[in-house]
Design a protein around this nucleic acid. Structure first.
Length: 220
DNA sequence: CTCCGGATCCTCT
DNA sequence: GAGGATCCGGAGG
């Protein structure tokens, strides 16, 4: 269940908070992307917080903005609610929603979700997917299923052709698990940064190859 | 189920 | 010029 009427301004105000506080509110939210081929909507089940260099209380070495502004991370220094999409590993895109006040450059990486609309289109974009559960069960999978690329970086996620609906009732604290971030090299991937949040038990949460860094978390 | 390695190129130093 | 906020197929148990 998501809100139908919350204004973009109201949602942007919520997103302008600390991403670690915003994360639980975004779990269960539905992000939509309309293209000529159709619309795909994803209900978010997993996100990761990345802080900007101006969050001086605890600088985040895992964030793309740790080294300051660059051409790539420029959207993160802009207003909350916009997309920051980057390309990695030579073949994958990953999408974030910018958080925090203008200039702070924090964001939430969209790590996984459930496709709730545009199922066939999402499947055509991800022919390797074997089940509906896998369509967006990972950051690159989610970006692929939604048709997001670096061309979308910097665009407003709260306006056409995108859209974001927050849950009417945020997930209860007991339903939200948190743990170490995934795939972050160096100290930023340590237990000092337990900023991965997911809906405990949700089948669409990303799963990881055994033998790699394995993030285990406990309900709050 | 677990484990392993290849793909592949943008971004910043 | 190095390395990355990853995914997928295939081999083996």
């Amino acid at each position: 269940m998501t809100t139908q009427g919350a204004s973009p301004e109201a949602i942007r105000a919520i997103l302008s908070g600390d991403p670690r506080d915003v994360a639980p509110l975004l779990l269960g939210a539905v992000l939509s992307h309309r293209t000529p081929e159709g619309t795909v909507s994803v209900r978010l089940s997993e996100v990761e917080a990345y802080l900007g260099p101006r969050d001086s209380a605890q600088p985040d070495p895992g964030s793309h903005t740790f080294g300051g502004p660059t051409a790539r991370n420029a959207p993160m220094f802009g207003p909350a609610g916009h997309l920051y999409v980057y390309f990695t590993y030579g073949m994958h895109y990953c999408a974030n929603i910018v958080c925090g006040p203008d200039g702070v450059a924090s964001a939430l990486l969209l790590r996984a979700g459930e496709v709730v609309a545009g199922h066939s289109l999402a499947r055509s974009r991800r022919p390797a997917s074997k089940s509906p559960i896998d369509l967006a069960s990972g950051p690159a999978r989610l970006a692929s299923a939604m048709g997001l690329t670096t061309a979308d970086s910097g665009r407003d996620a709260l306006a056409e052709p995108f859209g974001l609906e927050l849950p009417v009732n945020p997930a209860a604290p007991s339903a939200v698990a948190r743990g170490v971030r995934v795939g972050v090299s160096g100290h930023g991937g340590s237990a000092d940064y337990p900023w991965r949040f997911w809906l405990d038990g949700d089948p669409t949460v990303s799963r990881y190859k055994p033998g790699r860094s394995r993030a285990v978390g406990k309900p709050l």
